[in-house]
Every structure is written in C-alpha cells, then in structure tokens.
Amino acid sequence: MSSNSAPKAPPYKVSVIGSGNWGSAICKIVAESASEHPEFFEAEVRMWVYEEEFNGRKLTEIINEQHENVKYLPGIKLPATVKAIPNIKEAAAGADLLVFNVPHQFLKGICAQLKDTVTPNMRAVSCIKGVELSADGISLISEYIYNELGIFCGALSGANLAPEVAQEKFSETTIAYTPSPGDAITTDIVRTLFHRPYFHVSVVNDVIGVSLCGALKNIVALASGFVDGMGWGDNAKAAVIRRGLLEMRHFGTVFFPSCENATFTEESCGVADVITSCNGGRNHRIAAAMMKTGKPIYELEAEMLNGQKAQGVSTAEEVHEFLERRDKLAEFPLFTAVYDVLFKGLDPKTLPSILEDTPSASSANTAKL
C-alpha cells in the first residue's frame, strides 16, 4: 500500500469526490479544518460536482459564486476555499487525499475515470455507506477503491444525517483508518481533517465492521419506515431496531469473523447510526411513504429524493441475493422480510410473526446485547 518513494511533506491537498448533500456537508467540514490547520493542509479543497443545470445555470458556477450547493444542500454556506470542478480528473489531479462520497452504484464508473489520475502516494477515505455486494461475494468500498486504484482507503461512517451535520448540530462519527508504517497521511492527520467542534471523530481499526454497518443499517431503516408508516408506534420500532442490529452483527460474524463486536454495539457507525437512520433519513422516509401511499419504492425515490437514491433499496436486493446463494435467508428474517416487502408484495403486517422464534434469535452469534 505504501510507495517506495519518500513520504511527501505537508501541506497536503484534499479533494472531495461527490457533491450530494452528504458530499457537500463533508466538503464543508474538511475545508474548515484545512483552513484552520495550514501546517497540515492546503486551504483550497476541490469538490467534484456532476455538472447539471439549476434554474438555467451550471451548478458548479452557482457553487463557486454563491458558496452554496443550492440543489443538494440549500441554505448552507460552504467555505470560500471550496472550489467546485465538473471534470473529475481535474478535481482529483495532484491530490494527496481523496474523500469519496458518491452513491455506491456509481463508484465503478468513477474509479474507471480516475485510474490514469491517481498516483501511488495518494490516500483515500470513503464516506460511502455501502458495500459492493453480489451473489458471488462482498467487496468493501474501501477494498474496491484499493483494488481499482491501488491506493489505501479508510472508511467513515456514523450517525450523520447530512442536513444536521451541515447545520453544525452536534454529532459523532467513526473512522477506520490504519495506514502502513511510514505513510505521510497518518491516522492523526485524518482525524484532524474530519474532527470539528460539532463533529467528533472516533478512530478504530475495524474497516470491515465500519463498512458493513454503513451498508446494513439502511436495510433496518427501511423496516423502521414500514413500522412508522403503518403507525405501529415506538415499541414496535424499538423491536425492529434491536432485531436489525442483531442481524447486522450476525452478518459480520458469519461472513467476516475478524469484525469486532464493539464496532456494532459501541461505535457511532453501529448502534448510533441505526437509531438515527430509523428515525430519519431518506431510507426511513421513503419506506414510510410506501406504506402510506401504496406506491412502488422506485416511484417514490423519483418523487421524494431530488435525484438522489435510497441506498437501502439496492442494498436489500444485493444482500438477499448474496444470502440466497448461500442458503442463509432463514438466519436473517428481518433482512429477508424487507426484501420481500419491497419486491415481492409481502404484507408488512406479517413482520411480528416473521420475527418470532427464528434461528437468528436463538443463535449464539446473535445473543442479547
């Protein structure tokens, strides 16, 4: 993972790849920190923006003139040191640290565009809450970036609803980042870049656990949305949250034995993010709307999400295919039920019976927290 050349001395150049609401919020954070720490970072932070028109003007022009992403994060001022760039290669060129923040289904095309731009000394942090999942296997986003681009990549995930973070309401996050000895971009430097008075950072070594939490919690959020959409109340939602967290941990235990239980139960990326996502966020909102309107989930995505995606929908589909191939569906009744509600017309009112006396409920791997 390390280059044979001598590590570059600071200041380091940071580029953010992605400009949705979470990408813009993260760009605000790192640009603030970069300006406050010239001993570590260059002040200018480039942000790759997928170019589109907004009210007849290019979005990048609006961001650079008004210092606001008026489409995806309206009402939030970005530091003047943020520079929106529509060309992804230009945005990434010369960077020392790339911060990835795009929907995970677009990552393959983005990495393909960046292959000729990255250098061995670059490092990366993925803020993408997902995994590359197929029937054949699971690839963590950080691993995928490393395999495609040849640069070490950590992972950031936590109870971080983008609008609240952007409004500087207090929250915590978890970063898994373990560079090779001698790397210029150290754990302390990464923590300095992301830590703010309103955004506290905990650093761990469990990249796998952090990445899995960021993906699987979205499935639980959909289940919680079903419950709220049907008006079942807080007791039912608490039950779904508990069972969902157990299935998340069981998934890690079964398929990634090196996962640390504490990542799921003690870190912001685990239990805290599950709670937040099950009370707000796009996956919860869209699932609740599905119950109230009876509309298909993809129709609601188009109506409600302003061009963005509910990541839990694709994750639920991918996880189901993965588990079905391994004959493990019975061990994950909540994950399976979410898929069946979304894609097979299962009546969500059957959730209580589905979650009763299941293999995962009595398994030693899903013992009480």
Rank of each mutant, 00 (worst) to 15 (best):
G158T: 06
G182Y: 00
F251A: 01
P296L: 08
G23P: 06
I17P: 08
Y339H: 07
S353Y: 11
A43M: 12
A92Y: 05
F194L: 05
H195K: 10
S258Y: 01
P7R: 11
K217T: 06
E266N: 13
L107P: 09
T117G: 08
M1A: 15
V70Y: 12
R57P: 11
K58F: 05
L98N: 07
T178F: 04
E267I: 10
M304Q: 06
S202M: 10
E36L: 11
P163H: 07
L300G: 05
A162I: 00
F251D: 01
P163T: 02
G109A: 05
Q167P: 02
T187A: 15
Y198C: 02
M291V: 01
V313S: 15
G233R: 00
E317H: 13
I29D: 04
S268N: 03
I141E: 07
L59I: 14
Y146E: 13
I185N: 03
G281D: 14
M230A: 15
R123Q: 10
A238G: 06
I85L: 05
K349L: 09
G225K: 04
V82S: 01
S277G: 03
G18P: 06
C259H: 03
V203Y: 07
A135P: 12
E317M: 12
I76T: 08
D188M: 11
E44Y: 08
E53L: 10
S2V: 09
S314M: 03
G23L: 02
I208D: 07
T81D: 01
T178H: 09
R326S: 09
K83I: 15
S180W: 11
P179M: 03
E172W: 08
G75P: 01
A310Q: 05
G231C: 00
K368S: 12
G307S: 07
K13L: 11
V82K: 03
K169L: 13
G94Y: 12
Q66R: 14
V16I: 08
R282G: 05
Q308P: 06
F41A: 02
A287W: 05
F170G: 04
K89F: 07
A288L: 04
V319H: 04
I297W: 14
A302Q: 10
T358P: 08
S126M: 10
V118Q: 04
T192K: 13
F255N: 05
A176H: 14
I175A: 14
Y12T: 10
L305T: 15
F335Q: 09
A302Y: 07
S35E: 14
N69R: 01
T293C: 10
N21T: 00
L329V: 00
P11S: 07
Y177T: 15
A239M: 00
I62Y: 04
A364E: 05
H284Y: 12
S268I: 04
E36S: 15
N235H: 11
V118Y: 03
D357L: 06
K8Q: 10
L59V: 07
G244A: 14
M304G: 14
M291Q: 06
I26H: 15
F335Y: 08
P359K: 02
L246E: 04
L59Q: 08
L329S: 00
A80F: 02
P86N: 03
G109N: 08
V99W: 01
A6S: 14
I110P: 12
F343Q: 04
A124I: 07
P296I: 13
A272W: 02
E44R: 13
F40H: 13
H37P: 09
S2Q: 08
E68D: 06
C127W: 01
T315V: 01
